[in-house]
Design a binder for these strands. Structure first.
Length: 262
DNA sequence: ATGGTGGAAGCTCCA
């Protein structure tokens, strides 16, 4: 049975409950992975999602910050939640579908402003988080697995509006890109979005600080869909739903989708 | 070099 999966940094699931419902109605993915829910798990408005055909949810949350959730039409069993760097942040949850496929949903730390761990603790925490992810995949090589989320890094030159102007901007620095590549290699992860759409500029995030995000189009591809090689070939029809960034009261991220024939 | 916007919590932190 093929299934469609979406990942979306929602920037408050309670404030944007109506947007989530609109997206679920419009696109009907089998699985929606959310990041930055900014809500304790018990306050996530899951009744409305259930009423639209998403009765299954696994989530980790905390008050005000971070938070990840997986909404699903099909049963999904939680199989892990890694803190990775002992910050007490709700940044990861993993679930297993009945067909055995494991889905990892990640919200990697943004990393603060200055790309220097000597003066910016958060940047060091971001690099350490990626290193811990790498080590976890080295320790246990994932199989039949999908990894999605806001990884807060745009790895390729054509994943940002200006490679040259962003080389020293957190999210596109060489040291971050190298850390992300090590994490990807450790799991053997295939970048599904780029396997499907290998050429051209591709963004999933546009800053709120731009007066006209659409016209300026200074985007970055921070949100990713990866799969292990044993199932990556089953993926197709990747899309980034740029128009959702233009909905009223939007998140600064657009949903990223892919379909798997599994 | 700076400030631009937005969410949550609550007179500030985080993105």
């Amino acid at each position: 049975m093929p299934f469609t999966l979406a990942t979306w940094n929602i920037n408050s699931v309670r404030l944007r409950e109506a947007l989530v419902l609109r997206f679920l109605e419009a696109e009907g993915p089998d699985i929606l992975c959310l990041q930055e829910c900014k809500s304790p798990v018990e306050k996530i408005p899951r009744e409305g999602f259930a009423a639209l055909g998403y009765p299954h949810m696994i989530a980790r949350g905390q008050k005000g910050y971070n938070g990840v959730a997986i909404l699903s039409k099909r049963p999904i069993a939680e199989v892990g939640a890694n803190d990775h760097v002992d910050l007490g942040h709700a940044r990861h949850i993993a679930g297993r579908l009945e067909n055995g496929v494991v889905i990892h949903n990640y919200y990697v730390p943004a990393g603060g402003d200055k790309p220097d761990r000597e003066v910016n603790v958060k940047f060091g925490q971001k690099l350490d988080y990626l290193t811990a992810m790498r080590d976890a995949f080295h320790a246990e090589r994932p199989e039949r697995a999908i990894l999605v989320g806001d990884l807060n890094i745009a790895p390729r030159e054509d994943d940002v509006w200006s490679h040259k102007q962003l080389l020293k901007v957190v999210s596109h620095t060489p040291v971050e890109v190298a850390h992300l590549a090590e994490t990807q290699e450790a799991g053997g992860w295939v970048d599904v979005t780029r396997a499907d759409i290998p050429e051209g500029q591709l963004y999933s995030w546009w800053s709120y600080r731009s007066p006209d995000w659409d016209a300026a189009d200074k985007g970055r591809r921070l949100d990713h869909v990866w799969a292990t090689p044993d199932i990556a070939g089953a993926a197709h029809s990747s899309r980034i739903l740029r128009e959702v960034r233009g909905w009223e009261g939007p998140s600064d991220h657009a949903p990223v989708m892919a379909t798997f024939d599994l």
